[in-house]
Simulated assay, not measured.
Amino acid sequence: MNRRVGVALVALAVSAGLVLSACDGGEDPTDPPTSETSETSESATPTETETADPTDVPTQPEVEAPTPADEALVDDHVGAIWAVRYFLDLYAYMRQTGDTGQFDAMSASECQFCASAVERATAIHEDDGWVEGGEIVFDVHGATAEYPTDEEPNYLVRFSLTQEPQTITRGDGSIDEVDSASGNGVVALQFVNGRFVVFGVNLE
């Protein structure tokens, strides 16, 4: 297994610096087989020796799509905060399932973070992998939002967050375990045609 520590969302894109480890718990191959071992090997059928335990094969769990709170549909500072809550839920859901539709629909074309996040999630699932965990936790009541101005057309939502541990299963069978991480974030978003759209994300 691979283990790495990520910093909130940004660190999930980092693939370098992984430490690989393996252990072999079998007998010393130089030991001669005993008579009992020889008899067992001769009597065993190919099915008995080659069939893997199906419980050892990881499978992708089903994940329910998030839904926005009613507050996230209101054009004010409270709505902007709840919209960010929904956006981060969509981020985790996209990585877990490979379904980019809702996250992409909430992302403006100008949002480079959004485009990169979609690309990375797609790459994991196109390679027959998936993600478990990694939900983003933050207190909406502790977040702040600045109203748009003539100089700054976006709501700016500032908050502290923690990303829960996650497991990334790759198509080749390898597994990355990502530890929980905490940081601060700023999301720029606008209320466009009756809904919030994210124009930029800065996480550190």
Rank of each mutant, 00 (worst) to 15 (best):
D139F: 06
E62R: 02
T37V: 03
Y147I: 01
L88T: 08
E146N: 03
I136S: 10
G79E: 00
W130V: 07
D31S: 07
S38H: 11
P153Y: 11
Q166C: 09
S35E: 15
R3C: 02
D172Q: 01
R85Q: 14
S107V: 02
N193G: 02
R195S: 14
G200F: 02
V192E: 15
R195D: 15
F196K: 13
T30S: 12
T144P: 04
T162H: 09
L20P: 00
M106R: 10
E132Q: 08
F103V: 02
V78D: 11
T59D: 15
P68D: 11
R120Y: 02
P58R: 07
V78L: 06
P32V: 07
A181S: 15
V19G: 04
P66W: 12
A145T: 12
F191Y: 15
F87G: 11
V197S: 09
P46T: 03
W82F: 13
L88F: 05
G17L: 05
F103S: 03
D179W: 13
Q166Y: 05
R4Q: 14
Y155K: 03
D104C: 01
A188V: 01
V14A: 06
G134A: 05
E132H: 00
P66K: 09
V7R: 11
I175W: 04
E177L: 10
R4D: 14
N2G: 02
T45C: 09
D31P: 00
R120I: 00
V137L: 05
E119T: 09
D172N: 09
Y155G: 01
N202A: 08
T122W: 00
T97R: 10
A121T: 00
D99K: 09
F103T: 01
